[in-house]
Simulated scan of single mutants.
Amino acid sequence: MSMEALRGGVAVITGAGSGIGEGLARVAAEYGMKVVVADIAVDRAQSVASAIVEQGGEALAVKVDVSTPDSIDALAATVHEHWGDVTLLVNNAGVETLGFTWELSTAQWEKTLNINIHGAIHGVRAFAPRMIAAGKPAWIANTASIGGLGMMPIQTSYILSKHALISFSECLYLEMQIKQAPIRVSAILPGPVATRIFQDGGTTIDTGSEQHRVLMNAMLEADGISGYEAAQRILPQIAAGDFWVSTHPEITREMAAGRAAHLTALGNPALPVEVLRGMGLSIDGE
């Protein structure tokens, strides 16, 4: 399959008001898709949709709160009423929350898991039945992270949610095989991409969490590719039917190999030396 297979179809992308989601919306429109720009920040969604229309594309901005199943159901109803069958669903919306596990409030935990995990689950629940019933080739992609192949303290709520999304995507892939549905499933594992995730992310009140946020945000700003460039790498892989979709293949392979070796050895959790240094922690022998 190639990008031509997506042309003329309808793309629904959550978290499309900025970052990778915005990039995916713009690239999908450039390839002739009708794009639903879904985001909780409706002003951002409208801005992206307007830019697409100004460039000759078709786009519809819709406000959605993916942490609320009813809001996702309303999104699905709006899309099907406006444009009919959905060709591409990208469950992309996500948040970053920093803090020690026991210091995050109930509200912070619920918000993070509801957006990052349940948002994708209910996105599939709301859209997949009609996609299957249509009997036409279609694509579902869930935005996880290379963090889903590793571990990182302070980012616990985010990291565990991305592990969960990889597992969810794997099981969904197998379920589509059992149903013999012409729907391809992908897990997107972005590497360093300069988005608003650390700017918009919440933290606990301790200075360590705030320092970690500043450090991670600075790293992405210095080394991260743009959301648009990430989307240019991501969408062709989705169209090709790849399950593992990466913005930085070499980093992804390295992370996957490291995870496999760690599990094979049943090793204790540990961080690389360079990460420890970056967090200001002492290292044996230094």
Rank of each mutant, 00 (worst) to 15 (best):
M1G: 14
I13A: 01
G15W: 06
G19F: 14
G21I: 14
R26P: 13
E30V: 14
K34A: 14
R44S: 01
S47I: 05
V48P: 09
A49D: 10
V53P: 08
V53M: 13
V53H: 09
G57D: 06
A59P: 11
L60I: 09
A61E: 04
A61R: 04
V66R: 05
S67C: 00
V79T: 09
H82W: 15
N92E: 08
N92C: 07
G94Q: 08
V95C: 00
V95A: 01
E96H: 02
E96D: 13
G99S: 05
E110L: 11
K111W: 13
T112E: 06
A120K: 08
A126F: 03
K136P: 02
P137H: 10
A138S: 14
T143H: 00
L149C: 09
T156Q: 13
T156K: 04
Y158E: 01
S161T: 12
K162M: 03
L165P: 01
S169N: 01
L172W: 05
L174E: 04
K179L: 12
A181K: 05
R184M: 11
P192N: 12
P192F: 15
R196I: 06
Q199Y: 05
D200G: 05
T203H: 01
I205Q: 13
T207E: 15
T207A: 13
S209H: 11
E210D: 12
E210W: 08
L215E: 12
N217L: 07
N217I: 01
L220G: 08
L220I: 04
E221C: 04
E221Y: 01
D223I: 12
G224S: 04
G224P: 06
I225C: 05
G227Y: 03
Y228T: 09
Q232C: 13
R233N: 04
R233K: 15
I234N: 10
L235D: 07
P236Q: 02
G241S: 03
G241L: 02
F243V: 00
H248D: 15
R253Y: 08
A257W: 11
H262F: 15
N268K: 15
P269T: 12
A270D: 13
L271Q: 14
L271I: 11
V275K: 14
V275R: 14
D284F: 09
